[in-house]
Amino acid sequence: MNQIDATLWSRSLRALFGEGMFAAVGARRRDDWRLDALDVMQLRMDDPRGWSKVAAAPGGSDYGTGPDGPFSAVTPGDFSTAFPVSRRGAEQILVTLQGDWFQTEDIPDFDAREAELTSDARTILERFGEDALFFTNAATARENPHADMFRREGAYEGFTSRVMDCGVIAVSATEVGIFWGFTID
């Protein structure tokens, strides 16, 4: 694994996450990572390294922490629909968030861009180290955490109040990252 810094992180984050998306990291402070993930989702903590985040609602405004935030109604019990996924699968899901319906066929010029997008996803997840765990709400991972997430069914366990959402939760011994995309309601 490569050592990444704030500049490389920011470049990869900008390449993969834009309007209508969410990418933020917080400190892992509790044994139950779900509580820390919830704090990150609801923007109740800052990035422990001071690195950039993306919390851009459709139209360019910031996702707030109030009732309009995409994760405002999420509770620790909702994490039962977050299924373990391999690192490769987590990278692939980060890439598929580029498509309107989180599928590769909805990503403009995917065949030409696949290697670059995958490299950016790998960079983002490298931050969490080799021992990190990854979770997703993509239903394919429920049955097979090692499935090819580029070729998965388009079924998701709703994690937010949005019509459709998909994402990855990255958990290390010291940090929790939330990387999520939403369809426009």
Rank of each mutant, 00 (worst) to 15 (best):
F79G: 06
T140C: 13
R14P: 00
D32V: 08
R44V: 00
P67N: 11
T123Y: 05
D100L: 12
D120L: 04
D31C: 06
F79H: 03
G26R: 07
D120R: 14
I169G: 02
S172H: 12
A56T: 15
S12G: 13
D109F: 08
V176D: 09
R28S: 07
L97V: 02
V95L: 04
D131N: 15
D39K: 05
F182D: 05
L117E: 00
N144L: 05
D31E: 15
S86I: 02
F128L: 12
F150P: 04
T65Q: 15
I124K: 09
P145L: 02
A173K: 14
W180C: 12
F71I: 10
D111E: 14
T123I: 15
R151T: 07
E175T: 02
G177D: 08
F79I: 07
T174N: 11
W51A: 08
G89Q: 01
L133W: 02
N2V: 12
A170H: 08
M21P: 07
S80M: 06
I169P: 00
T136G: 05
D106W: 05
P145N: 03
A90W: 04
D62T: 14
C166D: 00
P70Y: 08
R151K: 14
R87W: 05
A139T: 13
T160Y: 09
M149L: 14
I107W: 01
M1F: 03
P48V: 10
F79Q: 05
R34M: 05
D165G: 11
A27I: 06
A115H: 04
R151Y: 01
E91D: 10
T65N: 13
N144C: 09
L8N: 11
S61N: 07
A73N: 10
D131C: 04
P70H: 03
F17G: 08
W33V: 02
A27C: 04
E153A: 14
R87F: 10
G66W: 11
D111L: 06
A141E: 04
G158K: 12
N2G: 01
R14E: 15
V25P: 03
V163T: 15
F179L: 15
R142V: 01
A139P: 00
E19F: 09
P84D: 08
R44Q: 15
P67A: 13
M1I: 03
Q103Y: 01
G66M: 04
E175R: 03
D39T: 06
W101P: 00
I124W: 07
M41K: 05
G167M: 04
G18Q: 13
G77V: 04
F17S: 08
V85T: 07
F135G: 05
I93W: 01
D32I: 02
I4G: 02
E126W: 10
A57Y: 06
A82L: 13
N2K: 13
N137L: 06
G154I: 02
D131P: 00
